[in-house]
Design a protein around this nucleic acid. Structure first.
Lengths: 219, 219
DNA sequence: GTCTATAACCGGATAGAC
DNA sequence: GTCTATCCGGTTATAGAC
């Protein structure tokens, strides 16, 4: 067959493995299934990868660095300025729409985390996966505040962790129950609770924060 | 060997499987490993179980019905009455202490859920697992309100779902990062946010709720 | 470099002796 | 009823032809 540069072959196998994992789970991602998905021979696999574990490590790294889980508020430049609560809620909705559009992908992310937690020597990979999540959440939190002229009154790293904690919880519950309405209510709750940690950037912040009604906007 | 009633043998195998899963994960729970753990022969397994799937189904059912994950506030009858926020926080701490005391068990619960979600025909089992969680959370929410003379101003089923969503998120984050301080902060956050959904049982509820400061008690 | 063929092993499940 | 021995398919990884 035509020769393929090893780097390209590795990348192709990682992508094939990701498709298999999304479709059938980490357990189903055997070397044979992966090379089948990639249209290669088994020997080609072991020509560019020492072992299945080596591929899995590269796969998690690829997932982590390409991860674009989107918590950014869906921006519409032409729209009127919105409050921080609406910005958070919009970002959460954006994320959740992604989950609903591709549940298998989300299931795969959880499976990869748990696989890494279980596989000896791979736990740090799960840590890096979550560091990346926190990084993305932090960016989203920063943008939401900037967009609405707000400031967070707690360290942004804490806000980011809460965001990930909440989205994880909502995602798992939805994957199990597929209850859209309950998920939306949980996102309302999350937006309300997080908005309580933001205040207007100008001086008159304290009063606004104190009087903020955490129930506002929950239907 | 000595004869063992089939029901006892089934139970013993389920318990052995649970130990293997907690120790080494669902993937490692092969029939051979399970019978090894139980000190039986492979044939004994297939004498009382049609297949490995049949054991797994019984195992999840056993887990679900014996599940005693404890979200109840740690009560001390001799202690002064406490507010709803403290009661919730105490229950969450109680739960989290359990997670920290036996992380493998918690990891196993997540793995079982994901295994069921993935295995054809077993998704309803994951649903029942979560129904049970919601049931336990609902009981805890009811008790916390009764204990503190409060009433929930939202359906208790919603409170229960939020509780499970929050504990799931906190648990996953902790299993990955092992960051105790961050978990405690998240539990503070959860207690504050949930307390906003409770009011004193007597008439003067509205004002108290409106003025409730969701940041109170977060260190 | 890429292939086919195979080694070496582990999985669930079963046959048949006792 | 419980055992040992075995079947058979699937797994990772490698050997060796081309």
């Amino acid at each position: 067959m035509t020769r393929i540069p090893p780097a390209d072959r590795r990348a192709a196998l990682v992508q094939a493995a990701l498709r298999v994992i999304a479709r059938d789970g980490v357990t189903a991602a055997t070397t044979r299934r992966i090379v089948g998905e990639a249209g290669m021979s088994l020997a080609s696999f072991h020509y560019v990868f020492e072992s299945r574990d080596e591929l899995m490590a590269e796969l998690v790294n690829a997932v982590v660095s390409s991860e674009q889980t989107d918590l950014e508020p869906a921006l519409d430049a032409s729209r009127a300025p919105i409050g921080i609560r609406a910005a958070i809620r919009s970002g959460l909705q954006h994320y959740f729409d992604g989950v609903r559009a591709d549940p298998d992908r989300e299931k795969a992310m959880f499976e990869l985390t748990q696989w890494a937690l279980r596989e000896p020597g791979f736990a740090p990979l799960a840590g890096r996966q979550y560091d990346r999540y926190y990084e993305l959440a932090e960016r989203a939190a920063r943008d939401a505040a900037a967009l609405t002229g707000s400031v967070w009154n707690r360290p942004i790293a804490e806000i980011a962790r809460l965001l990930v904690t909440l989205t994880d919880g909502v995602t798992i519950a939805w994957l199990v129950t597929r209850d859209d309405a309950a998920a939306e209510r949980a996102l309302d709750f999350a937006a309300d609770a997080l908005a309580a940690f933001a205040e207007p950037a100008d001086g008159g912040a304290a009063v606004g924060s104190l009087l903020h009604n955490p129930n506002a906007g929950i239907r």
